[in-house]
Amino acid sequence: MEEVSSNVVHATLPRKQASLSGYINGFILSIIFTVWAYVATTHHTWTHNKLIAALLVLASAQFLVQVFFFLHIGHETKPRWKLLLLVMMVIFVLILVLGSIWIMNNLNYRMTPDQMNTYMLKQDGGI
């Protein structure tokens, strides 16, 4: 029958994918990651740089948890367009955010007088 497109989606709502256990797992894991991040910050468990890294890892982990358990990405049938779009989004977000930080930081210490002094002194092997 010609009208049936090859892209028919067999489950319009995430019937097969969604289950109570999925949501509960996601919820509990999210709580764990949130509390961990909170305690690490308020109790100064790690040094500054390690804390930053840890917080970002915890945030990314919680992101993945919620994307998998709450948004059901990873459960879809092929072709996995939603996943592709998600991956593209993550890539472009990282480019924009990290790129902007890199560029602006670079510009800031070169283009701001007092910071320029600090930078130049460092270059001379000073501070």
Binding site: I95, N106, L107
Partner: peptide, 18 residues
């Protein structure tokens, strides 16, 4: 096209590496 945008402001003062 998403990783070239700085070429519009090379002269704004970023360093050689950027």
């Amino acid at each position: 096209s998403f990783i070239v945008w700085l070429h519009h402001f090379f002269t704004m003062g970023a360093g050689a590496d950027v």
